[in-house]
Design a protein around this nucleic acid. Structure first.
Length: 104
DNA sequence: CCGATGACCAAAC
DNA sequence: TGTTTGGCCATCG
C-alpha cells in the first residue's frame, strides 16, 4: 500500500497558507505530475490525514464541491470563509483573489 | 483476486 | 475554434 505520490500531494496541500486555495492541477503540477490531478482529488477524498487541509483544495473553477462526503455539506465553504477566503455569488471561490501561488 | 471508477486537468484532433 | 481522449494511483465491489 505504500503510496507513491499521495504523500507528495499531501505535502503540497500542507503548504497552502490559510486564506488561500489551490487547484488540483496546481497541486499535481507541483507534485511533479501535471496529469495526475485525478489522483489529487482521490487523495483528498481519502484525506485521512488531518494535517492536510483538503478543504483548501478546489477544482479549476473554484467549485468547493459542497456535495462532499468527507465533510458535511457546506462545511468546506464555512472553513474557507473562516480563513478569509472570498466567495462569489455562485458559491465558488474567487480564484483571482484567493488562488494560492506556489512561491508564497 | 481482478476490474472499474474516481473531488480532475491538459493536450490533441 | 470546440470537443474528445488520455493519464495517473488508490480504493471499492
Amino acid at each position: 500500500m505504500s503510496g507513491r505520490v499521495f504523500p507528495a500531494f499531501y505535502d503540497v496541500v500542507r503548504r497552502i497558507p490559510a486564506g488561500k486555495v489551490a487547484t488540483y492541477g496546481q497541486i499535481a503540477r507541483l507534485a511533479g505530475m501535471p496529469r495526475c490531478a485525478r489522483l489529487v482529488g482521490y487523495a483528498m477524498a481519502a484525506c485521512q490525514d488531518p494535517a492536510v487541509p483538503c478543504h483548501r483544495v478546489v477544482d479549476r473553477f473554484g467549485g468547493t464541491k459542497a456535495a462532499f462526503d468527507t465533510f458535511a455539506p457546506g462545511t468546506q465553504r464555512a472553513l474557507l470563509e473562516a480563513e478569509g477566503v472570498d466567495f462569489r455569488l455562485d458559491g465558488t471561490v474567487d480564484l483571482e483573489h484567493c488562488l494560492w501561488s506556489p512561491q508564497t
